[in-house]
Design a protein around this nucleic acid. Structure first.
Length: 226
DNA sequence: GCGACAG
DNA sequence: ATCTTGTCGC
């Protein structure tokens, strides 16, 4: 669908409310061959951001394709409006490759969001791709009272009795991830996939590799411009 | 009014 | 997210 990224806060809120109705939470995902991750970093007092997409083969997890880019930071950081800060660059990097991507992992929330439309959902709807929100901290929902210490331990992420996602331990002893459906997949499937994608780190391989790329790229640009 | 608040 | 010193653990 055609991307539209308001610069105005009121319009951003309205757009989230409108697009949230497009989210499909429970779709039987087809057999997957490629999994992708996308991440964004900032520099120069947040006026410029750099982004990267990494596509891995599945299940062998070899990096098969990478895309990098940069652009102006189009929106301030406002909790629950992260999309308008990061989605424009992500969309630009992903749009030409969406036919190769079977599922996209995003560093942020899916439907575990005040209007059930976090960054992962936003990218999923715009690109018509299955997406999974893999946030490193909580935005909405209650912190579970108890959570096992081992990889695979999980607890429902709930808000007012509503199931928003899963708090999932992806490695022994690390802080959990806050998982939620972004678009076109179901939570149980997302949980198992993310665990498979965490053979080494707390973050799933596609996000870990995308994060490494944007960090290196940001540092490279800071050297070049000083 | 107060606290919470993805990256 | 970025900045940024020391520190705890394997």
């Amino acid at each position: 669908m055609k991307p539209y990224f308001p610069t105005d806060m009121k319009k951003a809120l309205a757009l989230q409310r409108e697009l949230a109705s497009r989210v499909k939470e429970a779709v039987r995902p087809r057999k997957i061959r490629y999994v992708a991750g996308v991440d964004v970093a900032y520099h120069k007092g947040r006026s410029l951001n750099v982004g990267a997409v990494v596509i891995l083969s599945y299940p062998d997890l070899e990096t098969v394709e990478v895309a990098r880019g940069e652009g102006p930071t189009p929106f301030p950081y406002v909790p629950s409006l992260l999309s308008f800060r990061e989605a424009p660059l992500c969309y630009e990097l992903l749009e030409s490759k969406k036919r190769k991507i079977d599922v996209l992992l995003v560093d942020g929330q899916g439907i575990a969001h005040p209007r059930r439309f976090g960054l992962a959902s936003h990218l999923g709807v715009l690109l018509d791709l299955p997406t999974i929100g893999c946030a490193k901290s909580r935005l909405l929902g209650d912190e579970p009272k108890r959570l096992g210490k081992r990889k695979g331990s999980r607890a429902p992420l709930k808000y007012d009795g509503e199931r928003l996602g899963t708090v999932l331990r992806t490695r022994d002893g690390v802080r959990p991830l806050y998982l939620s459906v972004g678009h076109k997949c179901c939570l149980a499937w997302a949980e198992e996939l993310v665990l498979e994608l965490c053979p080494r780190f707390r973050l799933p391989e596609p996000l870990s590799r995308a994060h490494n790329l944007v960090t290196k790229e940001r540092l490279r640009m800071e050297v070049k411009s000083s």
